Simulated scan of single mutants.
Amino acid sequence: MGDPPRAGLSVAEQRRRLSLSGVRGHVAKGRHFTNQALQDWGWDGTETSEDVLLLVSELLTNASLHAGGCIELVLTAGEVLRIEVFDGTTTPPRPNPSPQRGIPGGHGLYIVGRISDRWGTRIHEHGKAVWAEVEASRLVSGRPTGR
């Protein structure tokens, strides 16, 4: 019979927030939170949804390692899925100009740039948000992961 067609969003835009200030295991919590949102929005079980989880992991890890920690993870769904990670510094992230293959570290923003459709930073009064976007069409039509 096959799988039923994947549904899009029933609401034009939805937003979810997860406070991460002082939370231990924030990367795992952020991935779980994101996975639940993707399931609720009918955007789970595809290669692109796995890419979204990797984006969340990379952004949260970068905030933890280079910006003094994560304050909040915000997911906004509409025509794009926007992932925002808020931290308490205004220093913009700088991609490593020459990450070395096979050596850990320095690849996070390169990965973010490769798998997102767009990414950037936004300064606000208490720090910054590093964001990445994935077109919703990729989440709806992505190849199944085979789970």
Rank of each mutant, 00 (worst) to 15 (best):
V52S: 06
V140A: 10
G2A: 08
T89G: 13
A77L: 09
P97M: 12
S21W: 04
G127Y: 09
S10I: 10
T89E: 14
S21C: 04
W119M: 03
A136K: 13
A77C: 08
A132T: 06
R94I: 09
A63L: 11
H124L: 04
R118H: 05
T48I: 06
A63E: 08
G42T: 06
L109H: 06
Q14R: 10
E47R: 12
D44A: 14
H32G: 13
P99E: 13
S57A: 07
R82I: 00
P97V: 13
Q14Y: 04
G2F: 08
A37I: 07
P95F: 01
Q36A: 09
I103Q: 07
R15N: 00
C70R: 03
R17K: 10
G30K: 05
S57V: 03
G88P: 07
T90S: 12
Y110E: 04
I71T: 13
I83N: 00
A129N: 06
P93N: 14
N96Y: 15
S57K: 00
V74K: 12
L73A: 02
S116M: 12
G2P: 09
H126V: 03
S57E: 08
H107L: 14
S19M: 12
G108Q: 15
P95H: 01
G120H: 09
V23W: 01
G2D: 09
L53D: 01
P97L: 10
S49P: 10
G30T: 02
G142W: 04
R17D: 15
T76R: 14
I115N: 10
H66K: 12
S64W: 00
H32I: 14
T61P: 02
R16F: 10
V74G: 08
V23L: 03
G22L: 07
H26G: 12
A132M: 00
P144F: 02
T61M: 06
S57Q: 05
S64L: 07
I103R: 15
V140Q: 11
R17F: 11
H26K: 14
R24L: 07
K29A: 07
T34G: 01
G108Y: 15
A12F: 06
R114F: 15
D51I: 03
R6A: 04
S21Q: 08
P144K: 02
G30I: 02
G2S: 10
F86Y: 13
G113W: 11
D44Q: 09
R24G: 06
V11W: 08
D44N: 10
L18A: 00
S57T: 00
C70K: 01
G146T: 02
R143N: 11
P4Q: 13
G78C: 04
F33D: 06
L54H: 01
P104N: 14
S10C: 13
I111P: 07
A132K: 00
Y110G: 11
I103G: 00
R16A: 10
Q100L: 15
H26Q: 14
A28M: 12
T34M: 04
V112T: 08
G25C: 05
R82Y: 03
P5G: 09
R17V: 08
D3M: 15
L9I: 09
F33C: 06
V80N: 11
P92Q: 13
V140H: 11
L20W: 01
L18V: 00
A7D: 13
V112P: 10
